[in-house]
């Protein structure tokens, strides 16, 4: 796993941030930052320019979909994986249509969640090992 970078976790529930944080620690060389709501997430994104955002769907005030929309306005190339508690097909589809890469179900086991992240980091490795562009 050669991915080394900053990951932003956005969730209004601190226990979820802690849990996801522990899952991410399994992947080496990550800097992890947290945000507890949409506004904080936008500020943190502007400051830190993380390589990946894990974004909760269900948040009070500015929900995940709206946050995603604004993140894409700030940086159309930002990489976002949604955090959802319920495989709410409609919301997930909406997020994917807005440019989210994938979604993580918070109510699945940590191994299942880790697998989605492994797949994502793996896809980065694969594209990194492809012939480098000038």
């Amino acid at each position: 796993m050669s991915f080394a970078g900053t990951v932003l976790i956005v969730d209004d529930e601190s226990h979820i941030r802690k849990y996801v944080c522990l899952i991410l620690r399994q992947f080496a060389q990550l800097t992890i930052i947290e945000a507890a709501n949409g506004e904080e997430a936008l500020g943190a994104y502007e400051r830190e320019r993380p390589q990946l955002v894990l974004l909760d769907v269900n948040m009070p005030h500015m929900d995940g979909i709206e946050t995603l929309r604004r993140l894409k306005e700030i940086d159309p190339t930002c990489s976002v994986i949604m955090l959802t508690s319920l495989a709410n097909r409609k919301t997930v589809e909406e997020a994917l249509a807005l440019g989210a890469l994938d979604y993580l179900r918070k109510d699945t086991s940590k191994d299942e969640m880790a697998k989605t992240l492994t797949d994502y980091f793996g896809s980065l490795d694969a594209s990194a090992s492809a012939p480098a562009s000038p």
Partner: peptide
């Protein structure tokens, strides 16, 4: 569900 998932995961 969310808190339960966290308890189990932690």
């Amino acid at each position: 569900r969310n808190p339960l998932a966290s308890i189990r995961g932690l």
